[in-house]
Amino acid sequence: MDVILENLPLYWNGFLRTLFLSVVSGVIALVLGTLLAAARVSPVAALRGFSTVYVEVLRNTPLTIAFFFAAIVLPRLGVKFEQFEIAAIIALSTYTAAFIAEAVRSGVNSVPVGQAEAARSIGMNFGQVLNLIILPQALRTVIPPLINILIALVKNSSVAGAFFVLELFGYGRQLANANGDAVIPVLLGVAFFYLLLTVPLGILASTVERKVAIAR
């Protein structure tokens, strides 16, 4: 236990880094994912096709591949970053966006088709139908699965530790290397700080689920 208490500042630092990675990637993924879902249900075939291919490719390949692309392939294509953190954010947000797109799409599909027909009948265009009628109703059913995806994102951010980004897991690895006799407490400490992020998210998910059920 001493090893955790002694290195508390380091843990805290790692915790904040993980929080930062998760929040930034999460926000980007939410925006990108919602746009992808909108493209998926749009009347434009090219947008639907792009969104489908994007989602299927990212959702069905390991996150590590996304990281390799962002950290190694992108720089070779001329996209250079000052820090690996940027690559980590790109990998995490593009990967997570695919899952968010699927969740939002299923939410959109859960809204009865008559809602969109009624909205179109009073002369709304595609954007208005989506923004004023479909998404507000879809988001209520989508919030619990979205939070699950964000929990996965927090955990997935640990992959960044393997790509030279010092976040919670990265610091944990350093500590484990430095304290060969106390690897188990070190890792328990890491787990504890992850739980500090993910457990409140889980509680939030179940609270929201109870509150936003929509009456039909």
Partner: peptide, 9 residues
């Protein structure tokens, strides 16, 4: 419409 389709929210 037959099923009214009022905006539920």
């Amino acid at each position: 419409f037959q099923s009214f389709n009022l905006f539920a929210h």
